Simulated assay, not measured.
Amino acid sequence: MTVNQRSVAHAIAIVALAGGLPTAVSAQLLSGAVTVADGDSLTVGAQRVRLFGIDAPELDQLCVTAGNSWQCGARAREQLSELVEGQRVDCRITGLDQYGRNLGACSTEFLSLNEAMVDLGWAVAYREYSQDYVDAEERAKARAAGIWASTFTMPSQHRKASDPQTTTPSSGRDQTSAGRAAEQHTDYVSPDCRIKGNRNRKGQWIYHLPGMPYYDATRAEEFFCSEAQARSAGYRRAIVR
């Protein structure tokens, strides 16, 4: 049995212990073969479905492990594709999102896809909308599964940082109330990633390297593994005089 097969088997066992799979009660049910768009959305027939209550890294998103960047968004899509390959998928639709996509809980015969993606560490619990998968996230974090073995930006923050309508030209950092709420769920930080990112009194986003003046006194808003990662997130290096 491969490592991935053992992980999937673990997720199946957890879902079974938690009380089984979602059932279609007073909600629209979409069923059939699917195609996967990314780590938290798929298409059933002609219907796009966003997996409710979870948030996977965006396709262009990178995570950092031991100072090396890797495509965790693309890997999350691969994981969901592996889970549904050759399977009939049932999606219990509960509403629509702001883009008109169906929102729902999807499952194969034995597996809740929403919970499995979080439990395997390829998505996080989307706490802003649901608490359903918080326990699964805590299990994944404890095992350092999937993205939890790396340093990463929460997908919601990554989207906001990539959206010119929600970033300021001077800093590239989102300062909307929604952005601040998202930041309450902090990034996971590897002990090897010690560059501190902080907003100063002038509203500028600055990063501090270990050994720099004020490093120890700086309260980190975020941690980074490299200066390139900090700059790509909209920070500039602290000026040492």
Rank of each mutant, 00 (worst) to 15 (best):
M1W: 10
M1R: 14
H10D: 15
A11D: 15
A13I: 05
I14Y: 15
A18H: 11
G19P: 06
G19V: 07
G20F: 05
L21S: 07
P22R: 08
A24T: 13
V25D: 08
S26L: 07
Q28Y: 02
T35P: 06
T35V: 13
D38C: 08
G39C: 00
G39Y: 02
S41A: 09
L42A: 05
L42R: 04
T43M: 06
V44Y: 02
V44S: 08
V44T: 11
Q47I: 11
V49Q: 06
R50S: 02
R50T: 03
R50D: 06
A56Y: 05
P57A: 02
D60C: 00
C63Q: 02
N68G: 02
S69Y: 02
W70T: 03
G73P: 00
A74M: 10
R75P: 01
R75F: 10
A76E: 01
R77G: 13
V84K: 07
G86M: 01
Q87L: 10
R88S: 14
V89N: 11
D90A: 15
D90I: 09
C91E: 09
T94E: 12
T94P: 00
L96H: 06
L96M: 07
Q98L: 10
G100T: 06
G104L: 04
C106H: 08
E109Q: 14
L113S: 06
N114M: 12
M117D: 03
D119L: 06
D119P: 05
L120C: 01
V124T: 13
A125F: 01
Y133G: 03
E138Y: 08
A142P: 09
G146A: 00
I147H: 04
I147Q: 06
I147E: 11
A149Q: 15
S150K: 07
M154R: 15
P155E: 03
P155W: 03
P169D: 02
S170P: 03
S170F: 07
S171M: 04
T176R: 11
T176A: 13
T176D: 04
S177A: 12
S177I: 05
A178M: 11
G179K: 00
R180G: 08
A182W: 05
A182G: 05
Q184L: 15
T186I: 13
Y188H: 14
S190R: 13
N198K: 10
N198P: 04
N200Q: 01
G203M: 07
Q204K: 01
Y207K: 12
Y207F: 15
Y207W: 14
H208W: 14
L209T: 01
L209K: 08
M212V: 03
P213Y: 00
A217V: 04
T218E: 09
T218C: 04
A220V: 01
E221N: 10
E222N: 13
E222G: 10
C225D: 08
Q229K: 03
A230L: 05
A230E: 06
R231N: 12
S232V: 09
A233V: 05
R237A: 12
A238H: 13
A238N: 10
R241H: 08
